[in-house]
């Protein structure tokens, strides 16, 4: 009897929690739905004023009007077509640049941070504390703050207007080092001791441990990919040729009012810019969460 009772109250509790979440979800998702429907709207439809007040929500006309401004009148592919053929920005070039630079940064950051994290967690060396403080400082001083001197330094190196000018500075990350330090600490010391007793070199031990932490590698790579995908200031300073630019800059250009880009094209570009990161996350968010859970507590 008691069991059934608690199951019932459990169901009630779960329903109430779900209901409480609905308004949040609506607030978060409404603009996204609006964006997707915006792809198919003409400028005239897009700027239709939303004047639903002072009509009452009980009125059927209210809902009609709301639906009318929300949904497109027809599914016209014109806006997508204009974006894809590169009428406003060289879309495919820009997408490819963004992909290359984000993947490059993610792979580089994972490699560097994993090596450094391994050294912090498992090796002994002088001034470890000082190095660690430097890593913390790296987190605290955002790259954006010193974008201008970095930009002029990249010019000196001859990396201006090159994708490497974005990738190479993007591989150092304090967050990654701390993350991998924690990850390597979680692995029992005995594993590496066994490997060492068998005569493996330090680098061999490291490579062996890497195969154990692949969920962590995936998780950090994903986070870094997303952050790199969003980077705006440095690419804007460094990349000047249009076909070299990355997505956020192309988007900013589309949004610029003086360009008179149709709203539908802007919305199509926005939607496409969201797909890679969303897909990546949807595919591996379970692995990501469990590897975070292992690490975050203690």
């Amino acid at each position: 009897m008691k069991n059934i009772d608690s199951a019932k109250s459990g169901f009630l509790r779960r329903s109430v929690s779900t209901l409480l979440l609905v308004p949040f979800l609506l607030a978060v998702l409404y603009p996204f739905l609006w964006m997707v429907f915006g792809i198919f709207k003409t400028n005239h439809e897009f700027f239709q004023p939303l004047r639903i007040w002072p009509m009452k929500p009980l009125n059927g006309e209210y809902w009609m009007k709301l639906a009318d401004t929300f949904f497109p009148n027809e599914l016209s592919m014109r806006n997508i077509h204009e974006l894809v053929i590169g009428k406003w920005v060289p879309f495919w070039d820009v997408l490819l640049n963004s992909m290359l630079s984000s993947f490059g940064q993610a792979i580089g950051a994972v490699a560097l941070s994993a090596m450094t994290g391994y050294a912090f967690a498992r090796l002994k060396f002088h001034w470890k504390n000082i190095y660690f403080v430097i890593v913390l400082a790296l987190i605290l001083v955002p790259r954006q703050l010193f974008a201008v001197p970095l930009f002029s330094w990249l010019n000196t190196l001859g990396l201006n207007d090159s994708i490497f000018g974005i990738i190479l500075p993007g591989v150092i990350t304090g967050l990654g080092v701390i993350y991998f330090t924690q990850v390597f600490r979680k692995i029992p010391v005995e594993y590496s001791q066994v490997a060492r007793t068998c005569g493996a070199s330090e680098f061999r031990v490291f490579l062996t441990l890497l195969s154990l932490i692949w969920p962590a590698i995936l998780s950090y790579g994903m986070i870094h990919f997303v952050l790199a995908w969003h980077e705006h200031l440095l690419p804007m300073l460094v990349l000047s040729t249009e076909s070299q630019q990355t997505l956020p800059i192309a988007l900013a250009k589309l949004y610029d009012v003086s360009q008179r880009t149709p709203q539908g094209v802007q919305m199509a570009a926005s939607t496409f810019s969201l797909i890679p990161t969303a897909l990546l996350f949807a595919l591996c968010h379970r692995k990501f969460k469990s590897s975070l859970s292992d690490m975050l507590v203690h």
């Binding site: 978060v28 998702l29 997303v226 969003h230 988007l251 926005s270 969201l274 969303a278």
Partner: peptide, 8 residues
Amino acid sequence: LPALTPPS
């Protein structure tokens, strides 16, 4: 979803 969307 918003965290995955570019800030612009």
